[in-house]
């Protein structure tokens, strides 16, 4: 290890932080541009102008924009996410529980989908252009091509309604045991796995096949190494950077993109929370959810970048 590689890593981290900061500004600006008005949403169409003005003053909506941005940012840095405009709850507490739920769902999906995708990618390369490869490609591509809400409803129809094997809604509560929780989230996990599997598996296959064109693969074959050893020792270490990149991208999607699936299965996660409060024009909640999603997304991609740097033997062992 040398100084220059740590400089590169430090650069990625600083860039990540800068990106999170910039996205906070974007999110804040975006929410200011949204049409609609919280006071109107709370009081309804029949409210008098005086009542609306009073409520606006009470909610702090008359303070200049930049002041609100700065105080929001300072609050965030202190762990204070503010209070919800619609129900007056502390947002940090509400989000904390839901974020844990979302991460639980995403992690469960990732633990199944990542190894599965890599194994299927390996199998595809081992049997390239033969029937196992074609079958894996066909099934995964078909599953990614179906919209996730459609997939969710199909699964609910067959496995919950027709067969009764799994609950149709994925309600979980703190009182449930771990096993009960897993049972509850079976269907959403299956949907998420099907959605992210194809992308990761195709990328693993493509990255491995790309490396398999290299001259050193021929060297390994001409040294009499078995096909699996060639892939595992020669192709995998050199294909790992693009694979990790796409895995991280999909992990980020699992956290950020579960909105639809959470809503379909009425799962008490971040997605549902966000959607509820967008409908109520509850700007602080929307902003906080936005910044958390952005931070997760940027962090995971930053980790992928750092991993690619560390996995490059030319950077790890300079001349």
């Amino acid at each position: 290890m040398n100084a220059s590689i740590w400089t590169l890593v430090a650069q990625r981290i600083l860039l990540g932080l800068l990106l999170i900061f910039l996205s906070s500004a974007l999110i804040f600006a975006g929410t200011q541009l949204l049409p609609g008005d919280v006071a109107q949403a709370i009081l309804g169409q029949s409210a008098t102008p005086e009542a609306l003005a009073n409520l606006r003053a009470e909610l702090g909506l008359n303070v200049p924009v930049y002041q609100r941005y700065v105080s929001w940012l300072v609050g965030l840095l202190h762990g204070d996410m503010g209070t919800s405009l619609t129900n007056g709850q502390d947002i940090a507490t509400a989000i904390g529980r839901r974020l844990a739920n979302t991460l639980f769902l995403a992690a469960s999906a990732a633990i199944i989908s990542v190894p599965l995708a890599i194994i299927l990618g390996l199998v595809s390369v081992l049997y390239r252009n033969r029937w196992p490869d074609k079958l894996i490609s066909a099934v995964t591509l078909a599953s990614i091509s179906v919209p996730e809400f459609m997939l969710s409803y199909i699964l609910v129809f067959y496995f919950a309604v027709q067969l009764g094997w799994a609950p149709s809604v994925a309600m979980i509560s703190p009182s449930m045991s771990v096993l009960e929780r897993f049972q509850a989230i079976t269907l959403p996990v299956i949907v998420l796995v099907m959605v992210v599997l194809a992308h990761m598996m195709r990328m693993t296959r493509a990255a491995l096949l790309n490396v398999m064109q290299s001259a050193y693969i021929e060297t390994a074959e001409l040294n009499g190494l078995g096909r699996f050893k060639v892939i595992w020792r020669y192709a995998m270490p050199n294909a790992v950077a693009p694979i990790v990149n796409v895995v991280m991208l999909n992990m980020a999607y699992l956290v950020v993109g579960v909105v639809v699936v959470e809503v379909v299965f009425v799962y008490p996660g971040m997605g549902q929370y966000l959607v509820d409060h967008v409908a109520k024009r509850d700007v602080p909640v929307v902003q906080d959810c936005g910044i958390i999603f952005a931070a997760v997304y940027i962090t995971l991609n930053m980790l992928a970048d750092i991993f690619s740097i560390l996995a490059n033997p030319r950077l790890r062992h300079p001349r």
Binding site: L222, N223, G224, L225, G226, Y234, N238, P313, R314
Partner: peptide, 29 residues
């Protein structure tokens, strides 16, 4: 063939630079 390659008959490629796995030490290879 696997039994013969790398034991009875071996190969030296035109471009050794491309013929070595970049992520493993030379001695291992």
């Amino acid at each position: 063939l696997r039994g013969v390659r790398g034991s009875q008959v071996t190969y030296v490629a035109q471009s050794a630079a491309a013929g070595f796995n970049p992520s493993r030490k030379l001695i291992e290879q």
